[in-house]
């Protein structure tokens, strides 16, 4: 295998090295390491992140084309911590930039993003995740009646708006799963054609046990809510209470009363 250890740097073509160096330092907040590190006859400047990642600006004689012809949506995301992001918002407003996010509808709760272009039109996203990105915030809806066991076939999944949860009917019994994705708190959809729960924010998927089936590593199973079944078969869920799970087991299911 190739043995790549990770990302090193992004080489960026610019038309005016002085102007771009100032932008990347004063607007974005990178640290200038120095000029002329690359074996390249063109003027170049290397700027540092706090990690080992770098941006190398190279001054080119012609107009810069930040995108290849017929490409689209080319961008680079620059990661900050939450404090740096707060300072960036303040800094950018102070410099007269309009703070905006043209993909806001795709952000999970707690994802924050600012779109910004450098002087040559390279598109960046300044991003952070709030510390509360995964925090559970109950809607205080109390108990939600979810119909009768007779209303469900084995395999059924029904979504409930108040309290944001699903009721899942498995052969062994029922349980209630939170609609909040445990990855970055996007709102999950049930996709009956694919038999999976799907998060449109980052593409995480879960099976009907609520277990992660996507390529994302280390995503916990969907959280659950207490569910009870009365003697007459009425199903009640308490979505204000969250049960975090490490994995699925059948003891999490509530059996149908005989």
């Amino acid at each position: 295998m190739a043995g790549v250890s990770g990302f090193s740097h992004l080489v960026v073509d610019v038309t005016d090295l002085d102007r771009s160096e100032a932008f990347y330092r004063d607007v974005l907040g990178l640290e200038i390491l120095g000029r002329g590190f690359l074996n390249d006859e063109r003027p170049n400047s290397t700027l540092a992140f706090n990690t080992h990642h770098r941006i190398v600006l190279i001054q080119v004689p012609d107009k810069v084309e930040p995108f290849r012809p017929n490409s689209s949506s080319i961008h680079h995301a620059l990661m900050m911590n939450a404090d740096q992001f707060d300072r960036a918002e303040e800094r950018l407003r102070g410099l007269g930039y309009k703070i905006g996010d043209n993909r806001a509808q795709f952000r999970a709760v707690g994802d924050r993003n600012i779109d910004i272009f450098d002087p040559d039109g390279h598109r960046y996203q300044l991003q952070t995740y709030n510390p509360n990105a995964r925090a559970f915030e109950p809607e205080n809806v109390g108990e939600v009646v979810c119909g009768n066991v007779k209303d469900y076939k084995v395999g059924d999944v029904k979504a409930f708006v108040a309290g944001k949860f699903f009721v899942v009917r498995r052969a062994e019994g029922f349980f209630a799963l939170s609609r909040w994705c445990t990855h970055r708190k996007g709102l999950l959809a049930w996709k009956p054609d694919h038999w999976c729960f799907y998060c449109p924010m980052h593409g995480v998927t879960y099976d009907r046990k609520g277990e992660n089936t996507s390529y994302f590593h280390d995503v916990p199973p969907m959280s659950a809510h207490p569910l009870s079944i009365a003697a007459d078969g009425t199903i009640t869920v308490r979505p204000d209470e969250l049960i975090e799970r490490e994995s699925f087991d059948e003891s999490q299911l509530v059996a149908v009363p005989c």
Binding site: F7, G29, F49, H75, L78, M79, Q84, A88
Partner: peptide, 10 residues
């Protein structure tokens, strides 16, 4: 710096 890393590119 006021930035941590380049997170991803498209």
């Amino acid at each position: 710096a006021e930035l941590q890393s380049v997170n991803h590119s498209a």
